[in-house]
Design a protein around this nucleic acid. Structure first.
Length: 200
DNA sequence: CTGGGGACGGGGCCC
DNA sequence: GGGGCCCCGTCCCCA
């Protein structure tokens, strides 16, 4: 929606299934992950789209692999002069431009970041500070995202299933690795993806 | 090959 | 309107 940036929706091989929903909701202010059922078995309601709107387009985009959705060729579209990324939303474009402005510099190693909190996180790698603790095992993390991923490893539920071989994985990244490294190799070429998507 | 963790980037939301 | 915060995600490395 809002973001007009292209939404590349092909991060994973078609035979890699998204998870059913899991509760990853950690409310801000909580330093400790809840000790209680952090990931309820969750009614197997399908969660509609694993690729959230802000899903990282990441490298693929910049390699120009992104599918060009409608409206990118519209007259409203503008291209980032630095990386070539195309936006039809000017606010999104403006925000994107900031990502090229690496004004936050690490006083220790000199690495520069576009956002202050990226620098903050980076500084923890120097200081060893790990403010995010797992209430299940006590392990501490410097990065909230990493704690979240860790919490999933406590879950007995493996939400990400490979259609090809039916193996399941707790983390999407595991499934991704599996699909790319193991399963796909030597497998029948996956069928063409369904005529996709919601848009257009 | 799988599981796990560290580091970090992009974009949306909230104040 | 801008900055900070948070979430989601990827990449890489290692056991």
């Amino acid at each position: 929606m809002a973001t007009a940036a292209i939404q590349a929706n092909f991060s994973y091989a078609p035979h890699c299934l998204p998870p059913s929903s899991y509760d990853a909701d950690q409310k801000p202010g909580l330093e400790l992950a809840p000790a209680e059922p952090a990931y309820p078995p969750a009614a197997p309601e399908e969660y509609s789209d694993p690729e959230s709107p802000q899903s990282s387009l990441s490298a693929r985009y910049f390699r120009g692999e992104a599918a060009t959705h409608r409206s990118l060729d519209s007259q409203l579209a503008r291209r980032c002069p630095t990386c070539g990324k195309v936006y039809v939303s000017m606010p999104a474009m403006a925000m994107h431009l900031l990502t090229h402005d690496l004004r936050h510099k690490c006083g220790v190693c000199g690495k520069a970041f576009s956002r202050p909190w990226l620098l903050q996180g980076h500084m923890r790698s120097h200081t060893g500070e790990k403010p995010f603790g797992c209430a299940h095992c006590g392990k501490a993390f410097a990065d909230r995202s990493n704690l979240r991923a860790h919490m999933q490893t406590h879950s007995a539920f493996k939400h990400y299933r490979c259609r090809q071989c039916d193996k399941s994985f707790a983390l999407k990244s595991y499934l991704h690795k599996h699909c790319e490294a193991a399963c796909v190799k030597g497998a029948e070429p996956p069928p063409p993806p369904p005529p996709a998507g919601p848009t257009s």
